[in-house]
Amino acid sequence: MNGLIVSSLSKSFGAVRAVDNVSFSVDGGEFLALIGPNGAGKSTCFNLINGQLVPDAGSVRFGGRDIAGSPARKICRCGIARTFQIAATFASMTVAENVQMALIAHEREIYRLWRRANSFHRQHALELLRRVGMHEAADRPCRELAYGDVKRVELAIALAGEPRLLLMDEPTAGMAPRERRELIALVKALIVERGIAVLFTEHSMDVVFAFADRIIVMARGRLIADGDARTVRNDPRVQQVYFGTGRIAERSGSAA
C-alpha cells in the first residue's frame, strides 16, 4: 500500500473530543478533500497527520510506517510535503533560493560551510519553478511577490522533496476566486503527472466539487460522510450540519 492510512485517530483537549475515532485513507494519485463546519476537527485532524500534534489513540501509517507524533522534519523524510494555510516561505531569500534551500535540505547538505548556497541545484530549482509558472520571478525577493504567487512558490518548495503525499491546509485561503481555481487546477495536474496523493481542507465548495476525486466530511470530531461529490452533496446529515437548507445560495454574482 502506497498511500496514507489513518485508523481510529482520536484526540481530546480537556473534555472536548476534537477528533473522535476517525479513519480514512488516501491513495497515490488521489485528490481527497476534507470538509466540514468550523470547529469540526479538520485542523486538529490535519495536525495529527503532519506531526504537529500527538494523537491520544489510533495510528497514521504511511509507506508501511506509523508516523503519528513524529517531528515535522522526520515526516518530511518519509516523503510527505505540506503547504500551510498562510503560505510559509523564506521572505529574505529570492524565489529560486527558496526552492534551492528545500533541495539542499532534501539532499542533506545544510551543514556545508564553504560553497555558496545559491550555486547548489540551481537548474533543478528553475525547472520546478517553471512547472508552477514562477520561473520568470526566480531572482526576485520572495517578499515582493503577490500572495497568489507566494502560494505557487510554496508549492514548488513542497515538490522539491519529491513527496508521495502532499498535505494542503486550506490551500486557497485568502485568494481571489480566479486564483483559487488556477492553483487547484495546477495541483490537480501535478497529481496526475507525478502520482502524488493529496489531502486538502477547503472552504470554497466550488473548488471542492470541481476538482476533488473524493470528499470526506467531519462534524463534531467525527467522520460523517465519505464519497464522491454527488454522494456527499445529497447526504442528509451533511446537509444538516454543513450546507443548510440551501435558502442562501453561495454566489459572487449571477452566473454570466
Binding site: 463546519p37 468550523n38 444538516q240 450546507f243 443548510g244 440551501g246 442562501i248
Partner: peptide
C-alpha cells in the same frame, strides 16, 4: 458575517 462559516450558520 457569512465568510468562512457553514451554510447553516449563514442562515
Amino acid at each position: 458575517p457569512s465568510e468562512g462559516v457553514a451554510p447553516v450558520i449563514v442562515e
